[in-house]
Simulated scan of single mutants.
Amino acid sequence: MGRRHSIVNKKMGTAASKGKLYAKMSKIIEIQAKNGANPDLNPSLAQAVMKARQNGVPRDVIEKAIKKGSGQLGGAAYTEVFYEGYGPGGCAIYIKTLTDNTNRTSNAVRVTLQKYGGAIGEIGSVARQFEQKGIITISGKSRIEIVKGNETEFIDPYEQETLEMDAIEAGAEDIEFDDGICVITTSKNDYFAVSTALTHAGYKIIGSDIEAVCDNMKTLSEAEASQLETLLEHLEDDDDVQKVWTNIE
């Protein structure tokens, strides 16, 4: 999972990358809004909206996606499809897509894998190596003050012991602290409840999602790692690709 995050973080600095992030999260919201446009009555939509807000997606983008998904505005019909494959050095690659054309997406994923040293795998060949977990990243404690008539957010350092207790009480499975950043792991089922509780407690969440975690990690040679990074970058450049996970350290 670490290799994926390093690529995402490098990309997040540009306006184009933010636009791509907004588009991908909008697809998720559209799918969940099919079951109802009111987040209070649709927990899956509430989770998608919360994740989008935590990742900085503007309110108008979120509202437009809800309207598209609920039929208030015209929009494409998206389907969630997972692909399994192998990369340089035989590493496992697990790909999540949202697409309105499965033939187009399947062909694009297959071609990209083959072009950059990988290959498509059989159904079940890779997925069994991964377990879905909630991953929540916190940078501090948020507080709102009125400055010159406007609400302004300030981020204060969190108290590690207090955050740890709050996370455990909310249902966290694991908590890691590193250089002022806290990464909390939850079960897939408890993810929404834990994220909601920490948000209501005032913590600044800078990343929040369901991730595919692999415990059986492997290493690659320097050349293989470079080839894999190129492959992952091209996969994630595809607008239909939502997430890419590997079993590389």
Rank of each mutant, 00 (worst) to 15 (best):
L73I: 11
A167P: 00
S142T: 11
I138T: 01
E153Q: 14
E153W: 08
W245T: 09
D40P: 06
E249P: 02
Q160P: 12
A15L: 13
N38Q: 05
F177I: 13
S44I: 12
L45E: 02
E122R: 08
L98R: 03
I66P: 01
S226R: 10
E233T: 06
T97D: 05
Y158W: 01
K24E: 13
Q227C: 07
L41A: 15
D100R: 07
S26R: 11
R4E: 14
S44T: 15
E176Y: 12
I138H: 03
G118S: 05
C91R: 04
V241N: 00
I210C: 01
K10T: 12
Q242N: 11
Y83L: 05
I29W: 01
G90A: 06
T99Y: 04
S142F: 09
Y158H: 00
N216R: 07
A65G: 07
Q129D: 11
R53S: 09
G74Q: 12
K141I: 03
T97P: 00
E233S: 10
Y116R: 00
K67G: 08
D238R: 09
G89K: 01
T185Y: 08
I62E: 03
G74A: 14
D60W: 02
A108C: 04
L232H: 02
E145L: 11
K24P: 11
A76T: 15
P157A: 03
I93V: 12
Q47I: 04
T186D: 05
I66M: 02
N189G: 15
V213Y: 04
R59I: 01
N101M: 11
Y22R: 07
I62N: 06
A16T: 10
T186Y: 00
K34P: 07
I123A: 15
Q129N: 14
I31P: 02
S70D: 04
M165C: 06
Q72R: 15
L113G: 00
D209Q: 02
A127D: 07
K115W: 07
T196V: 10
D238T: 10
K133V: 07
K67C: 01
G207Y: 08
Y86F: 06
V241T: 04
E224L: 11
M165T: 11
I210W: 02
K11Y: 13
L228V: 00
G89Y: 04
L41V: 06
N101C: 13
M1L: 09
E224R: 03
D100T: 08
I168M: 14
M12I: 14
G118F: 04
D209G: 12
A33I: 02
T79E: 10
I181D: 03
N101G: 12
N38T: 04
E161W: 08
G69S: 09
K148N: 15
V49T: 03
Q32V: 05
A65H: 07
E224N: 13
T79M: 13
A119P: 00
Y158I: 02
V111Q: 09
T137A: 05
N42Q: 07
N107D: 13
G149P: 15
D209E: 12
D215H: 09
V244L: 06
G124E: 05
Y116P: 02
D190A: 14
G134C: 05
M1F: 13
L98F: 12
V111P: 06
M50P: 02
D209L: 04
M165Q: 14
Q47W: 06
A167S: 03
P88Q: 09
A225N: 08
T199E: 11
Y158L: 01
K24H: 09
L21M: 15
S226N: 10
M1S: 13
R143C: 15
Y203G: 01
V183C: 09
A170F: 05
